[in-house]
Amino acid sequence: MGLSASDAFRRLLWGGEGDRLRATWRILLGFAVVLGALLTGSRLLGRVEVPGVLVNGPVALIVLLAVGAYALVASLVPGERPVRGYGLALDRRWARDFLAAVAVGCVFQGLVTALLLATGTGRVVETLSPGVASGGGAPAVAVAVAATAVGFVGVALWEELLFRGVFIVNASEGLAARGLEPRRAVLVAGGASVLAFGPAHALVAAQGASPIFAAGQAMAAAVYFAAAYVLTGSLAFPVGLHFATNFWTVSVFGLADSGFPALVRLDRSLGAGAIELLLVVLPTLVMLGLILGWVRVTRGGVSTDEALAETVRRRHGSAVGE
C-alpha cells in the first residue's frame, strides 16, 4: 500500500523516524531564519538616521537579533540542536581560541599586504585616514574604529555560524546517514561549504579586485575557515580569523576611497594572473600551517574534532532519518 500525499510530504521533510527535520531542511532553515532576520533588520535600520561615525557598528545589533531569532526557532523545532551545539559555547577556551585566531589572522594579512607591496599590486595612497570621522578629532576616530571592529565581529559571527556551523554539521550528518564514513563525511561537507561560500563573493568583489580574484580568495579563505572549524569543533577560531581578515582590509591597510577609518590605504589592482595566484596560494599555505600548529599545541594532535566526529557518527547509516 503506497503512502498518502500527506505521509509522503511528511517523509520528505522529517524522514522515516519523524524525530527531526532532514539535514537539507535543517540547513535551509538556518539560512532562511538568519538571512531573513538580517534583511528585515537592515531594512528597518535603513529608516533610522544613524551617525556616520558609527559606520557598520549597528550591524552587530542586527546580527544578535538574527542569531537570537534562529535560537528561538531552533528551540521550537523537534530534534534541532541549540546554536551552542554548532560551536557557540562561549567559555574561556572559546575566548582563547578567538584571540589566538585574531593574532594568526593578523600575521596572515601582514604577509598578504607585504606581497601586495612587493609585487606592485598594492600601492600606498594615504596614511592615518579618519574616513567618516574626519573633522571629529581623536575621539571620533576612536569611536569609528571601535564601531568598525564590533560590526565586523557581527559579520564574522553570522557567516561562520551558517557556512561552517549549520552547513558543515548538518551536511556531515546527512552524508554519514547515507553510509559515508563519519570523518570522511565531515571532510566532504567542509569541501561543499567552500563551494557554497566562495563563488558568491565574486558578486561583492572589493575595490580593485576582479570577480575571479575575489571568488578565488574567498574560496581559499573558506578552506582555512572550514579547517579551523573541523579541527576544533568550535566557531571561535574561524570567527576570529574572519574578523581579522575583514578588519585588517578596511582599517589597518584599508581600501582607497573607503569611509572606514584606516591606518594606511592601499590602491589595489588584482586580476587573475600568476601574481594573483601567488597572493592566494602562498598565504593560504602559511595560514593552514599556523592553524595546524595551534590545534596541535592546544588539542595534543591534529584530527577532526572528536566531539564533532561523534555527533556525526551517531547518525551513520540512519538514512531513513536524514
Rank of each mutant, 00 (worst) to 15 (best):
L99C: 09
G46W: 01
S234A: 11
L266Q: 03
L54Q: 05
G198C: 09
V124G: 09
L285P: 05
L187F: 09
G174E: 06
S269D: 15
G131W: 01
V150P: 06
V302E: 11
Q109Y: 01
G57V: 10
L195I: 06
V104I: 15
E49M: 10
T24F: 14
V150L: 15
A218P: 03
A101W: 01
V124C: 02
T245W: 14
G301F: 04
V194T: 11
S172W: 04
L115C: 03
A147I: 03
V55T: 13
V59P: 04
A272V: 00
L279S: 07
G179V: 03
S303A: 14
E322G: 14
P211A: 13
G110H: 10
V104H: 00
L285G: 14
G271D: 14
V50R: 12
G190P: 06
L270T: 00
W14S: 06
W248I: 07
V55A: 10
V264D: 04
L12R: 14
V33P: 10
G2C: 01
V112H: 02
S129F: 13
T249I: 14
V107W: 09
A37R: 00
V230H: 05
L45W: 08
S193A: 15
R47Q: 13
A149D: 08
A66M: 10
N170M: 01
G85V: 06
G208N: 03
Y224I: 02
V302I: 15
E322K: 07
D91I: 01
A74S: 15
G105H: 05
A147W: 11
S4K: 13
A69P: 02
L282Y: 05
A214G: 09
P58W: 10
A274S: 14
Y70G: 00
V153Y: 05
A66S: 14
A236I: 01
V53A: 06
N170Q: 15
A196L: 15
G293E: 12
G259Q: 13
A214Y: 09
R81E: 15
L28D: 05
G120I: 08
D19I: 09
A206V: 12
L241F: 07
L128K: 07
V230G: 00
L187W: 14
V143I: 15
G68Q: 09
V297L: 15
L231V: 02
D19A: 13
D305Q: 07
A171Y: 02
G289K: 07
T311P: 04
Y86Q: 04
G191D: 03
A226C: 04
Y224K: 00
P130W: 11
G2F: 12
L288I: 12
A222Q: 00
E17L: 09
F247M: 03
V252N: 10
V230S: 05
Y70P: 00
L255T: 13
V230A: 00
G85P: 01
L279F: 08
G41M: 03
A176L: 11
E322Q: 03
V83L: 12
A244M: 02
L231A: 08
I168Q: 06
M219S: 15
A209V: 01
P238Y: 02
G289R: 11
E310Q: 15
E181A: 14
G240M: 09
A23C: 11
V286A: 13
R299S: 14
G151A: 11
L270A: 07
F213H: 12
V107E: 12
A69V: 00
